[in-house]
Write a protein that binds this DNA or RNA. Structure first.
Lengths: 192, 192
DNA sequence: GTCTATACACCGATAGAC
DNA sequence: GTCTATCGGTGTATAGAC
């Protein structure tokens, strides 16, 4: 038995290739317009062959969900680590990273935060990074003197609202993005 | 020529019946799961016969969009009219009516505020009531001493965020709903 | 005039040959 | 591992019965 499973490595690489093609397609045509036939054509297969790598179309969405939530957590980490280690400054950078993430690729925001695909729910594994991120948020708010769980929920509502309004009513612009800092001021004045 | 067009009246009644059946179906199965065949069966027709009343499935969504936005405006009006005529109290009732509207029928929220159906955009006629509602909001915020258009956008973001979080993470509950009043306090402290 | 019948091109998914 | 063949479902269009 070889100490490297070349077959498994190759399969994993093909899975990655399929997912990258899927991201490209949904960026071009929208999240709900992804079809197995288009996706197969994009990677040089028949649609049916994709089922050798993913058990269903929802499984592809699930893997994309995992991609996106891992990426978000990575960005949160680097945003917090990069710059002055002051609690409020870190919170601001974290918020900016979140909004940037939601806005620069609206389909990512749609997949993660708007449950729009009929019948699709992310698996616990794909969802886990988002849960960690939420706990991290609570710790960071506490570090800024915000201890009330109700305030934490207000924070997520404001963040979600800014991202949603930006994507829905001024896609590609910054009409709501630029309000983030004064929203944080407003929030901290009231809750800190 | 008769002074009443009985044929047109009958057609309009059938349109209404189809729309009511469509609302019932999307409430049960989700907005994107509406099919012409299901809908036809619900009203005792073949799917093809629906095309005598609506030119396409998107036309049905558009009429539903019109239903929902007119209903929202109606609720805003009654909420504002019913109770003490104090500007801030009226604003609070208006906000509560909005959240109630979004939460009691999540598909309505999805249809109006999350653009989730591939290729569907509401017609100007269906969209008009929402535009009026937004102008009315600005006037009411001004009456509360909030003159900055940036603040108006913050208001819509907070409202949208509360509704989105409530529907996404605690459907049927009140975890974010009950935060509306303190969000308004927070907002007015900062902007009024 | 409004329905039924039928068709088309597309969808996700499965079975089985090679 | 990828293919062909096929299935039941979808939105949509049109021809024709009555």
């Amino acid at each position: 038995m070889p100490n490297r499973d070349r077959r498994a490595e190759r399969a994993e690489a093909t899975r990655r290739e399929i997912l990258d093609a899927a991201w490209a397609l949904v960026r071009e045509q929208g999240l709900a317009s992804l079809t197995m036939r288009d996706l197969g054509a994009r990677v040089g297969m028949k649609a049916q062959s994709l089922y050798g790598y993913f058990s269903s179309k929802h499984a592809i969405y699930d893997a994309m969900f995992g991609d996106a939530s891992r990426e978000l957590v990575t960005r949160w980490r680097t945003a917090v680590a990069t710059g002055p280690q002051d609690s409020i400054a870190m919170l601001r950078r974290r918020s900016a990273a979140f909004l940037q993430f939601c806005v620069e690729e609206p389909v990512r925001h749609q997949l993660l935060f708007q449950r729009t695909i009929p019948g699709f729910e992310p698996s616990p594994e794909s969802y886990a990074p988002a849960v960690d991120g939420l706990e991290d948020l609570h710790a960071r708010l506490r570090a800024c003197g915000v201890d009330d769980p109700r305030a934490w929920d207000v924070w997520t509502a404001v963040s979600a609202g800014l991202a949603a309004q930006q994507n829905a009513n001024d896609p590609g612009g910054d009409r709501w993005l630029r309000l983030a800092d004064e929203c944080i001021d407003m929030f901290l004045e009231h809750y800190a």
